[in-house]
Nucleic acid binder design. Structure first.
Lengths: 335, 335
DNA sequence: GGCGCAAGCGCACACGTTTGCAGTATGATT
DNA sequence: AATCATACTGCAAACGTGTGCGCTTGCGCC
């Protein structure tokens, strides 16, 4: 434990500078001694001290990842992409859950700053207003996932949610639906707002007036979706199709419909959003809008790495969502 | 950017030692100067340099977490617990996905070692044999989740899988089932083996002979479970109930049954394992064996922290699994 | 007035690296 | 023989912090 470069130097009868250079494959040291030193390092069980190195190089090869909660299939898939491509380039990830609690958000940026991460990636549907500025004057590049926002050092990558809402709604329209509901997420969530805008746009393009009574509020999780669905059903006019903010919402919605004895898609069609891994195995398999979560993770990390390497031509990217047609949607029954 | 303790010292007209002590609330510095220094630190936007500190204290306040893949609802729930209680105690988490690939496992332990994490937590159903020794001679405490194994510095926490298999099977037996199948995970996975042992024990206690023909191989994911189920159905004797290695397997199983026109639970009962968040919303809601994933994460981190604080009385813990009765199981139809 | 004690502070070293610069051989060139 | 280039190697400073030890100062006590 704790063999340092100096110990090796002593054993090899050279100075520690030479050892440092030898291990870094510097051409400044004779091949023969380099080999001897490497051999020795190996035998002595040497492991470089990343912290000491970082202290002088001013690079930690570490990036901070902050998410609202890792226990969400959508974000964990993204994080998988982040970690994997990070690892491929010798970067390591510090994970912080914010739980959307300001206290934890603060703790997270504080920790990341003190640990001197080289950059930060944030996946949060809603970013505290106090929060981004804090990150910014920290001075490292930041990549936002699914949350366009701008600022110095800030770049973003995400799917085109407006387009996604549009595609989902157009799909239902093309099947012949006209009374299409939307189950939203709290309206401080940008992505929900954008998806709903797409929904409205598609409706209006089809000559159908937007009806506020067909919008209910969820929170992106099944339980709330069930309540929202029940609420929706209890109103007079029953929709023939429901577009859900995300797949978790769709899961809750379908459950509530089943409970009420309503068949999917025979009585009501349902379309989700995200295409998280399990939904293809549901009953019925869920028609949904795919976000390329894993790819987004990879791309976000790539983007950050380019920024860290001083690339000047880094552009925000927005990805086109696509419809994944499964079995939770069909033409409406004849009335 | 980059204001150090020395800068503050200069500004305050004291030595950097005094600043260091003042910020650490040492009684060795006069309250008045302490306040002045803190004030100054605040104004100058000082952020302590954790790396430099760690270099001298030999503590990084960081723990390494290695998982097979974060994109598994079971592990992400655990990680949530880990991260949260870590954060509560001022610890930060470095996340590594191994993907069960030796190459990545190696890379992970290398990185964690170089970054000098204070301890390591591993959640992997199968731990490479080469792997644990590597971690061990690294010399920091290690906590294994759901994988009892022993060694110096190694502690573990997990649920009693044998008991879990037993409970699941007893439940089915008590409903009147006698032809109960098991869909396993590859047999190098300890937990699958243990659950199957419990399954066998329960069967035999009920005077039912274990029938190898009723065991099929999955891999813990829905796709393989579908194939396993189809395989099972294609054999002569059809089971009246299926116990699945985990919930993901159960999801695939149910899907395959549906596809074959078999109703759950009317024709065949299914019980899962884990109780991951979504299964209560499935159709039918899944009867399963609950593992307290989040709690396990919290407890694992607690355990590690106690070890780091030099506690000598740390004991391995095994948690009792419990049956969560939902609607995917019922009495078999009369033949 | 001498002494001791406590409080408050600074010096200097340590932690393990990287790296610019200077130094020392060795051999070649004039 | 003197000079010089070449090829290595070592010295020492720096990164930002913590901390043992010693120094000064002020005060109370005999």
């Amino acid at each position: 434990m704790g063999v340092s470069i100096k110990d090796i130097a002593r054993a090899a009868g050279v100075s520690h500078s030479t050892v440092s250079r030898a291990l870094a494959d510097s051409p400044l040291v004779k091949e023969e001694t380099r080999e001897r030193i490497k051999q020795l390092a190996q035998e002595m069980g040497y492991s470089p001290h990343a912290l000491a190195r970082s202290l002088v190089t001013r690079r930690t090869q570490t990036v901070g990842v902050v998410v609202t909660t890792i226990a969400d299939p959508f974000v964990s898939e993204i994080v998988r992409g982040l970690e994997e491509t990070g690892q491929n380039h010798g970067y390591t990830i510090i994970l912080c859950n914010s739980n959307a609690e300001p206290r934890r958000e603060l703790a997270a940026v504080k920790a990341l700053r003190e640990k001197r991460v080289d950059g930060i990636i944030v996946t949060a549907s809603r970013i505290g207003d106090l929060y981004l500025p804090l990150l910014e004057d920290f001075g490292v590049p930041i990549v936002l996932i699914n949350n366009q926002q701008t600022g110095k050092y800030v770049y973003s990558i995400g799917t085109d949610d407006l387009r996604g809402g549009q595609i989902a709604t157009e799909h239902l329209l093309s099947l012949g639906h006209t009374r299409i509901a939307y189950i939203a997420s709290p309206n401080n969530v940008n992505s929900s707002q954008a998806r709903m805008d797409g929904y409205r746009a598609a409706l209006e393009a089809a000559g159908i007036a937007f009806d506020p009574a067909l919008v209910a509020d969820g929170d992106g999780r099944p339980a709330a979706a069930m309540r929202a669905t029940e609420h929706l059903l209890s109103r007079g006019i029953r929709p023939t199709a429901i577009f859900c903010y995300n797949d978790m919402t769709a899961i809750g919605t379908i459950r509530a419909l089943r409970k009420a004895g309503i068949r999917v898609p025979d009585d009501i069609s349902v379309v989700g959003y995200d295409d998280i891994p399990i939904v293809e195995y549901l009953d019925p398999p869920l028609t949904t809008i795919r976000q390329r979560k894993y790819d987004m993770g990879c791309m976000a990390m790539d983007m950050l790495l380019r920024l860290l390497n001083g690339a000047a031509d880094v552009q925000d990217v927005t990805i086109e969502p696509t419809l994944v047609l499964r079995e939770s949607t069909s033409a409406p029954r004849r009335a």
